[in-house]
Simulated assay, not measured.
Amino acid sequence: MSMPAPSTGMIAEPAGAFPQIEFGRTAEGILVACVADTSFAMLPARDGRHYLATGWRIGRPMAEWKRSDFYGHAGELADEAAFRCKVAENAEHQREKRALGRREIGSTANTPWGRSQGATLYAEGVVCHSTAGHGGFHLSAERNRKVHSVLRSRGGWYEEDAGWAIVALTFPHLFTSYERRCAERTIKDSWPDAWEAIFGTILQPGESLEKDRRAFEQRHADDWIVVSAITSDQQPGFVEVVATPGGRRGAGTEERRFLVPSGEYQVGRFGFVVDEARHPVHSGPSSFIGWQGRAR
């Protein structure tokens, strides 16, 4: 089967528009794109799937780009149309971000994550700090009073993994459309009770990771949930698992071993629930070093 010829084509945009978007293919036939300094690739995964990967300032023609130029896993892609949508979304984000006029400033401030090595000024009283290991926002006292009480941090510090979304929710005009969408998702997933209290709504199944986790734990409180798994050396074609009631851990928690056919062992969002009617208790020799010589 012949490989598609490498090609590139600029999206029709006004001359001088920022950022320019370019799509093309590598010599290996991988669909790629470039938005300013950021590069994207639709990389193949297992079972015919694809995922989004990114690169930075690849200084060669697209035909010469290689898979090793890209890193990270930014989510699964359904098809080429989904890839192009992700690229367009990033272009929109970069365009809006430039228009916001954020400014890099020097900083050596003490933060909850260590000494600041630099910061970005979003607006007066809204500063995002970077440190050697982590980072996040600091709000002035006046700005922090505007944060809803159910989400407010007493010291005005909001870490970069999830807490940043509280800042974006409070001051949406300082963030891009993409960032606002991410912030909404983060608040719903991390603080569903706060979201419901602020907006007077009830999040339905599938709308909040945390609410779904609670429902899963309540539904399977007495079921055996896997806490450790290993491909069985003793029983080919099976996965040997250690499970506990409700997936609980800690001293005194009862543990049991089960054998699960390898083809059935697909861990769900919150864990694998043992089906006692299908997955037998395993009391034979174990592939777990810590279980070798132990009774069931």
Score class of each variant (00 low, 15 high):
E92F: 06
F272Y: 14
A78C: 02
R213D: 04
E210Q: 13
G271M: 04
I202H: 14
V241S: 01
I11C: 11
G72S: 08
T26Y: 00
A243T: 06
A5R: 15
R143I: 02
F23L: 01
K211Y: 08
I21K: 03
V32W: 00
Q117G: 14
T176D: 03
T176P: 03
Y122S: 00
T26A: 02
A197H: 13
R219Y: 12
R95E: 08
G263E: 12
R60S: 01
V241M: 08
V87F: 02
I225R: 04
I187P: 05
D79F: 02
D79A: 03
Q117R: 14
Y51R: 10
I21C: 07
S286Q: 04
M10K: 15
R269E: 12
V127M: 03
G114S: 05
G247W: 02
R95C: 10
T231W: 10
R102C: 07
S130G: 14
G24K: 06
A17G: 15
R46I: 10
K211F: 00
G75M: 01
M10W: 12
H134K: 04
E255R: 14
R145P: 13
V127E: 04
F238H: 11
E184D: 12
S262H: 12
I58A: 00
F23D: 01
R152D: 06
S116D: 09
S286C: 06
G293F: 10
P236R: 05
F258A: 00
E142N: 07
G250R: 05
A243L: 04
E240V: 07
Y71S: 13
L31I: 02
H93C: 03
L209T: 13
R180F: 11
S107N: 05
V147T: 06
M1K: 15
V127N: 06
S177E: 06
G284H: 11
W164Q: 03
F18G: 02
E196K: 10
P61E: 00
G290W: 14
V150P: 12
R154H: 14
V226L: 07
V241C: 08
R102E: 11
A277Q: 15
W157A: 00
R98L: 08
S228I: 09
H148L: 09
G293C: 04
A119D: 04
E217T: 09
G246T: 00
A78R: 14
E276D: 14
R46V: 15
G133D: 11
V226C: 04
H279E: 01
G101A: 00
D79N: 07
V226N: 01
F216N: 05
W56A: 13
H279V: 08
H73L: 06
G16I: 06
E184R: 12
A88E: 11
F40R: 02
A5D: 12
L43E: 06
A165Q: 01
G9Y: 09
W195V: 07
I58S: 03
S116W: 06
F258K: 07
V267L: 06
A33V: 03
L169M: 15
P4F: 01
A45M: 11
H138D: 10
K97W: 13
E64Q: 08
A15Q: 15
G206C: 01
I198W: 07
R57F: 13
T170I: 05
H129V: 08
G135I: 07
T111L: 02
L77R: 04
Y71C: 10
A197Q: 13
A45P: 15
